[in-house]
């Protein structure tokens, strides 16, 4: 009897130790990644890197910077986020107001969106490529933006959907009882109430669009210039990192680390912004 009790205690101690070890491993591993990017990126980062376009022989170690990729990524991210916002807000309104939150049609659309969410970006890239061939467009800013929009649409819609779902039904009913149409209720009451959630979902989509490489590989092309119109090809940070990392020249690989640091900083800023907005919103609603 005593032996059994002792064993129980020992087993518990063992597994609790294992759990703590697992948690420490995860935290250490994740912090180690950020640390590696900082450690390798900072020595290679310079003002020239982020303020100039690549000059002749850039990929052999010549002068210049990655301004083309930074601008390209921001353009791709902004374009797809704006297009995504224009599409996702009507869909969210339909899901929650016109179709009825838990109606059969709404559930079907939500399931389809969840499936789309799971589709890897390389498949979206291939699909974007098919559309490009069908419409006869070349690899361009436009094709990249459209492909990225398809990629982030499910993320944005489901993110907003989860927030709007939590708005109390009484608010819907009291607005309608005052004589508002459903459209007026949606735009003036529900969307306003859900605004912080919408901003957070939008930032999430922006972060995803800016960091994705596989979807823009086929569709956006790559160039050393900053695009002037929608039909120009466009560079992006992830692809710039990817191409430079494969270089045999030490100095070019160093630039890849610096570009990775720039990308990480952009992502971290977006992440902190959305966290700040959520925190502020929670303070007000209490």
């Amino acid at each position: 009897m005593m032996k059994h009790k002792y064993f129980k205690k020992l087993e518990e101690q063992f597994f609790f130790g294992l759990m703590q070890l697992a948690t420490v491993t995860i935290l250490f591993g994740l912090l180690f990644i950020l640390f590696t990017i900082l450690w390798k990126g900072i020595p290679n980062l310079s003002w020239e890197m982020i303020s100039q376009k690549p000059q002749g022989g850039f990929y052999m170690g010549g002068g210049g910077g990655i301004l083309n990729a930074i601008c390209g990524s921001l353009l791709l991210g902004l374009g797809s986020t704006i297009l995504g916002l224009l599409l996702s807000i009507p869909i969210v309104i339909w899901l929650n107001i016109y179709a009825g939150q838990y109606s059969r049609n709404a559930v079907m659309v939500r399931t389809a969106l969840d499936m789309l969410w799971g589709i890897p970006s390389i498949v979206f890239g291939a699909f974007g490529f098919i559309i490009m061939l069908a419409l006869g467009i070349k690899a361009s800013l436009l094709a990249g933006i459209v492909t990225l929009t398809l990629l982030i649409l499910p993320i944005m819609v489901r993110g907003m959907d989860e927030v709007i779902k939590t708005i109390p039904k009484e608010l819907h009913e009291s607005t309608l009882s005052l004589g508002a149409t459903r459209w007026e209720m949606a735009t003036r009451v529900i969307l306003r109430k859900a605004l912080p959630g919408i901003v957070t979902a939008t930032l999430l989509g922006f972060g995803r669009a800016i960091g994705d490489a596989a979807a823009v590989m086929f569709t956006a092309g790559f160039t050393d210039n900053i695009p002037q119109k929608l039909t120009d090809p466009v560079a992006s940070l992830p692809l710039s990192i990817f191409f430079q990392l494969g270089s045999p020249f030490e100095i070019v690989r160093g630039r890849a680390y610096a570009a990775a640091l720039v990308l990480t900083i952009i992502i971290l800023v977006i992440s902190f912004l959305s966290r700040l907005i959520t925190a502020k919103y929670q303070k007000h609603s209490r």
Partner: peptide, 19 residues
Amino acid sequence: VLPLIDILAGVPSVIYGIW
């Protein structure tokens, strides 16, 4: 830990590749 995990879920895959 939870915010840290969420931030890292948003880090692009090319960064993990470099690491």
